[in-house]
Design a protein around this nucleic acid. Sequence first.
DNA 1: CAAATATATTTCAAGCCTAAAATTTTGAGC
DNA 2: GCTCAAAATTTTAGGCTTGAAATATATTTG
Lengths: 155, 155
Amino acid sequence: MSATDPVTGHPMSKQRLRLWLHMLKTARFVENELRERMRVTYQSTLPRFDVMAMLDRTREGLLMSQLSQQLMVSNGNVTGIIDRLVQDGYVVRVSVKGDKRATLVRLTPKGIEKFAEMAAEHERWIDELMDNVQDQDIEHFIDALNHIRKDHQHD
Amino acid sequence: MSATDPVTGHPMSKQRLRLWLHMLKTARFVENELRERMRVTYQSTLPRFDVMAMLDRTREGLLMSQLSQQLMVSNGNVTGIIDRLVQDGYVVRVSVKGDKRATLVRLTPKGIEKFAEMAAEHERWIDELMDNVQDQDIEHFIDALNHIRKDHQHD
DNA sequence: CAAATATATTTCAAGCCTAAAATTTTGAGC
DNA sequence: GCTCAAAATTTTAGGCTTGAAATATATTTG
């Protein structure tokens, strides 16, 4: 039916499935930790943090469609998250002159300041959660991850 | 403040953050693909598949609390997913004699059959999505993943 | 045994997420 | 200018997810 591992004789698909399950479990573990810390420390969420991170990298602002594309989430989803960030005063919607359909979304000064604080803490959390991963491993690890998406995605 | 990489001079925390972002992106990509295929092919979802996979491994059934613990999701969450699986006739709730608080959850014959079909297809999907990952890499990859959870979790 | 505490589960409110439909605006082709 | 397809966004319905409160039962302790 398909390729088998020359050493173990197991089908490759079983190995890849095992890899995927481990990856899922690890990602879930880290995400659960980060979510909880975001909640307790900042009364915020990971999706909100992700959106703010994108906006922080492009201070001129981003279109709703650019946001959802970059974050790999649906359009409608971003609408709700931005609604709440606007309510909290971290983000503003700015109309795009020349195209009444589009909306530009930007961090407010308050949002920029808050994000800086959160990002620094977020980085410390990751550093702590991953303190078992040593530098020489990291590049190989990232290579392997990119390998998975190669041929499928173009970012 | 913290350790720096001897080669690049960058703080380790930046490297780890980069690793985490790549991992998140890759996991999200695979999950999005799988979700879509589950939806189109089986009119089902990944969370339902995960629950059925757990139940398939323990045919005598599992307690709600065991399910939520193993899957690393909340109690209330599992309640809803089981509700829908019961509606579809894939799962039954069985009362535990000797403890009226607890509920055992089991796959029905229909559920067992359906899961076998879905699992086979699921494995093929993973195999296809990860066809860039070769066998010699996989064990290192899994090691690195487990390294992250080490000292934090005990499963 | 009664009271308090712990355990198993469900319910609830709120946020996240998706696909699909609806809305509004833009841009081509006529 | 009109018509129609494409584009940007929001809305909607339904499922997933959480933490916290509620419910019911079991166990421990005084």
